[in-house]
Computed example of a mutant assay.
Amino acid sequence: MITAEHKMEYYQALLDKKSEYEGIFYVGVKTTGVFCRPTCPARKPKYENCEFYETAQEALLASFRPCQRCRPLSHPNHVSPVVQKLVEAVETYPEKRWKEQDFDELDIDASTARRQFKKRFGMTFVEYARARRMGLAFKQIRSGQAVIDAQLSSGYESGSGFRDAFSRIMGAAPAKSADSRILRAAWIDTRLGPMVAIADEEALYLLEFVDRRGLEREVERLRQRTKSAIIPGVTAPIRSIEQELTAYFDGSLSVFTTPLHLIGSPFQKSVWAQLVQIPPGETRSYSGLAGALGKPKAFRAVAQANGANQLALVIPCHRVINASGDLGGYGGGLTRKSWLLQHEKQFLSNQRQH
């Protein structure tokens, strides 16, 4: 049940278009008869004209129809036809080097493509297409083909141009890349908003909400510490975590089994090991975790290790709260933390009883 206090909170989130409230509530607008997601770009209604619902189904049952601007029945970052068309074009001819006239042939405005790709992937379309070309080139080099063959097949006539592009995308020049690691990054839509997953062919390295503060620094630190290049792509661990996230949000999965690659100090890893032992539907305090580690005075260090976790949900740092019962902090936002704890208490703890 949505309380009066929650209604005021949700209305403010609607005014501020806060992405962390995606999936938490929907708003029905009595004057227009439509219902929207929290980040809808449309003009905001007055408070007295709003009805709040926890699910889209509730809003539909209350006779509201879905907004045509924010499309509440789609994922929060629904792929536009322009983005979809361009991605398909890249996959059809990944070696292609795109020019202005190529956009004209597809009847797509180049600036629109640039803007929509930047919003969706954090890079322009040209950068996306270049990363795809370079990924194929790197695969060829790793399989034993000569650098010159990879250079030509990826559309570069100039060796220096190929080397510069390779360095810019991969973080290393081709001649020095025989032993370097490639990590793939993929966008995963979830009920609580989009997440980014980074993995190699064996394990998951990072899983975070896209709007987490400081995510760019996290990714850069990961790249530097692993001496890796991070490019768009999908691997078996990414496919695995996407399936598990779907089951988790459906309330049918409580334990993640996707292989993980943990990067941290021995103390941090010991804290993370304690986190995965917290059953769904339950919480622990920072001081309680410190005590379980045999270091009762190290609760601040435990809190720091908790904040350094780069595998949201899988290593459940959201299950740690203050000893007073307050939620404490959470990189994905306290609204998400509250929702996750309630979700696990309501659905996943029941699963353990059967």
Rank of each mutant, 00 (worst) to 15 (best):
S80K: 07
V83T: 08
K85S: 11
K85T: 15
L86N: 02
L86D: 11
E88S: 06
E91S: 05
T92P: 00
Y93D: 15
E95G: 07
K96I: 06
K99T: 06
Q101G: 00
L106I: 11
L106Y: 10
D107Y: 13
I108S: 08
D109M: 10
D109Y: 15
D109P: 09
S111T: 11
T112R: 14
T112W: 12
A113N: 13
Q116P: 02
F117K: 12
F117H: 12
K118H: 15
K118E: 14
K118Q: 15
R120N: 08
F121W: 13
F121T: 09
M123Y: 13
F125C: 05
Y128V: 03
A129N: 10
R130V: 12
R130A: 14
R130Y: 09
A131Q: 09
M134N: 07
M134Y: 06
L136Q: 11
L136G: 14
A137S: 10
A137N: 03
Q140V: 00
Q140I: 00
R142A: 05
G144H: 03
I148A: 02
I148F: 05
I148Y: 07
D149C: 02
D149Q: 04
D149M: 00
Q151C: 04
S154N: 12
G155N: 02
Y156H: 06
E157N: 11
G159P: 01
S160P: 00
S160C: 00
F162Y: 12
F162S: 03
D164V: 14
A165L: 01
F166H: 05
S167C: 08
M170P: 01
M170T: 08
M170A: 15
A172R: 03
P174V: 11
P174G: 04
P174K: 02
A175W: 01
